[in-house]
Nucleic acid binder design. Structure first.
Lengths: 163, 163
DNA sequence: ACCAAATGGTTTGAAGCAAAACTAGTTGCG
DNA sequence: CGCAACTAGTTTTGCTTCAAACCATTTGGT
């Protein structure tokens, strides 16, 4: 940790650093985790910009997509695939079931769990949401350019190696 | 949006997809935003693993580092630099001030704002936290390898171009 | 100099999330 | 078998965050 730029300036005689241009980020500048958070945040806000009109709640799209591609998936597998805690999935599924977008059926071999499927309404809703999401993906794709595969591979490596 | 793998399996006759191995991610697999969220999440949890013993609240480290490197910084500039809403910074600063880690002084030229500085206690605390954070950074650096600069550059581009 | 618009900061309200505690069901090992 | 350890899912609790409403101050245009 290096020294501050002006450690003895007790009474704020200098300019109060209101302009963001000469900001010093120190060790944060080379911290992957810090930039990960900033980028994820920017991406999330842009996603909401694209889907703001539709009533897409943040968690719904990934959950609907995963059920669509994996009919019969269980909540716990769903939570691991979407990177959220199982307790986070519960209220999402409750809303999706209430709105008739998702249907569940018992699993004979394990009465603790249940299998999830999209209803026709759910498929329709997903198709709508996918259009909004595609706009966001296109925007991101344009930014990362041809290094997209490499970027995703690096991100996946972070996920798998950090346990 | 393509078809589900097994659309007519209404009664969960197939295996309930309890194993994560044959999971199909569909369009999510190539969505940068999705992997960004997963990676940020994994990084955050790893960071907490490293700093779990110390009482490092998630927002504190970035805030302390930014004040250290930019003595006299104002809350609003701090919020923009750390990528959080200004209303999120308020309670963090309240705690830091209460614990005597941060000190503030009036800015003559703008009575709405104030300048922030670390106290000696704050400098000491930051030095401690920096050790935990460095362990996390090292872990991440090992994962991303020599492509670190390229990765950070891509992440920064996402932040700046997404507004 | 005045007044509208913009800015810095705080407060309040609501959403998302994870950890922990709990229930119910399953698995494994003696 | 029987019981301990584990797993699936829900509930509860607390934290972090943003957005919107709000107040004080500053800025800019006329």
């Amino acid at each position: 940790m290096d020294k501050p730029a002006d450690a003895k300036d007790d009474t704020a005689l200098r300019s109060p650093l209101g302009t963001d241009e000469q900001l010093e980020f120190g060790s944060l500048a080379s911290a992957v985790g810090f930039h990960l958070r900033l980028a994820q945040n920017a991406s999330f806000k842009a996603f909401k910009r694209h889907t703001g009109e539709t009533d897409l709640r943040p968690g719904w799209y990934a959950v609907l997509t995963l059920i669509h591609h994996n009919p019969g998936i269980t909540p716990i597998t769903l939570s691991r695939a979407s990177g959220r805690d199982k307790s986070t999935i519960t209220p999402v599924l409750r809303d999706l079931l209430r709105d008739g977008l998702v249907r569940r059926s018992a699993i004979p071999s394990d009465r603790r769990s249940y299998a999830l499927f999209l209803t026709p309404d759910g498929e329709e809703k997903l198709a709508m949401l996918a259009k909004s999401a595609a706009a966001h993906d296109t925007e991101l794709d344009a930014i990362v350019g041809e290094r997209k595969d490499e970027l995703i591979q690096a991100l996946r490596r972070i996920v798998t190696l950090l346990d």
